Computed example of a mutant assay.
Amino acid sequence: MEESLALAIAIIFFAVIIIIKGVKIVPQSDLFLVERLGKYHKVLHGGFHIIIPIIDSVRAVLTSREQLVDIEKQSVITKDNVNISIDGIVFCKVDDAVQATYNVVDFKNAIANLAMTTLRAEIGGMDLDDTLSNRETLNAKLQTELGSAATNWGIKVTRVEIADISVPPSIEKAMNMQMEAEREKRAIQTKAEAQKEAQIREAEAFKQSEILKAEAIERMADAKRYEQEQTAAGQQEAMRLINISMMENEKAAEFLLAKDRVAAFEALAKSNSTNKMILPYDVTQIIGSTSVLGDAFFKGISDSKANNA
C-alpha cells in the first residue's frame, strides 16, 4: 500500500514537472527559439505555448524591442592627421531570431566591433572640419554599412548616432583662434558692405536729384519757349489787324502815331528830370519841316559844286 502511494506521488510529481517544462508563457516582447533534439524547431512569440519536455528545449530568449549598442570611445586619425576621440550609439532590433542565434555568437558585440572598424575607415577618409561639421552624413554612412552587414545576422539597424567628438587641446585652441579670425573677417566684410551700400544709395540719390533738376530746367525752358511763341503769335496777329485797319481806314496810322506821341509827352511830363523842354505840337512840325528844307538846300549846293568841277 505504501509502495503504491509512493509510486502515485512520484508519478504525479513527474507529471507536474513535465507540465511545467512543457508549458511556456511567452511575454509579448520576447521571442523563444525552440530546438528539438538539438535542431532548430520553431520560434515562440508572445502567448501560451506547449512544448514536449526533454525532447524540446528553449535554445535562446531574445527580445523584439529596439536595443542600444554602445560604441566605446576610441582614438581615430583623420585624413589630415589629427588624432581625435569619438564614440556613438547604434539602435537596432532583432528582425530574424533564427539568424540572430545561429549566424553570430553575440550580435551586440559583433555590431559594436563592426561599428568601431567602420568608423575608423570613414573618418580616415575625411578631414577634421568635415568630421565635425558633417555628422549627419557620417551617421548615414555608418547606418548603411552596419545595416548591410547586420542583415546577415537577422538584425535591423534603425539608427546610428555619433555621441561625442573630442579633439586635442592644441587643436581646439587653434580652432578657437580660427573661429575668432573668421568672425572678425565677417564683421569687416559686413561693415564694408554696409559702407558700399550707403555710398551706392547716396550716389543714386544724387543722380535722381540731378535728373529731377534737369527735368525742371527742361520744363521751365519749354514753358518760356511756349510763352515766347504765344507772345510772338499775339504780336503777329496784332500787326495783321493793324495792317488790315490801315488798309481799310487811312486815318488809322495817324491815330496810332498821335497815340504814341501823347504817351511819350505824358511820360516826359511825369519825369522828374530838370533837363527837359516841352514844345507845342505845331512847333515840332515847323522844326521838322525846317530840317527837311535844310537837308535839301545843302544837297543842292553840293550837287552844283560837283557839276562846275
Rank of each mutant, 00 (worst) to 15 (best):
E237T: 00
A60W: 03
E122N: 12
D56A: 06
A198V: 08
Q208V: 11
S166K: 15
A121Y: 05
E145M: 14
M277T: 12
A163I: 06
E227D: 12
I165W: 10
M116Q: 10
A232C: 03
N103W: 02
G294Y: 00
V94R: 09
G147A: 12
A267C: 12
S85L: 10
A306M: 14
S289E: 14
V104T: 10
Y40C: 00
L114E: 14
V34F: 05
S273H: 03
E180V: 11
Q143M: 07
E202Q: 15
L142W: 02
A10M: 07
K108M: 05
K21D: 03
V160F: 11
A198H: 13
V98N: 12
E210G: 12
S291E: 06
A181Q: 14
I188S: 13
N176T: 04
V104Q: 01
E227R: 14
A253S: 11
G294E: 10
R240E: 12
K39S: 06
A121R: 15
T284L: 01
R261Y: 12
T190E: 07
T290Q: 07
K191E: 06
K251L: 04
N139Q: 14
F107D: 01
F206N: 07
F91C: 04
E122V: 11
F255A: 07
I242V: 09
F14Y: 05
L68D: 15
N243G: 09
A263F: 03
L293C: 11
A10P: 01
L241R: 06
R201C: 04
S291M: 09
G38A: 13
S29Q: 10
S245M: 11
A181F: 00
K79N: 08
F107M: 00
T190V: 07
E227G: 04
D95G: 02
E184W: 00
E193G: 06
Q143H: 01
A100P: 01
A8I: 09
F297D: 04
D56N: 13
P27W: 05
Y281E: 10
N249Y: 08
I84N: 04
I217G: 05
E202T: 13
Q178K: 00
L132S: 01
K270S: 04
N308K: 15
N308F: 05
I20K: 08
K24L: 02
S302T: 13
G147P: 05
K196G: 12
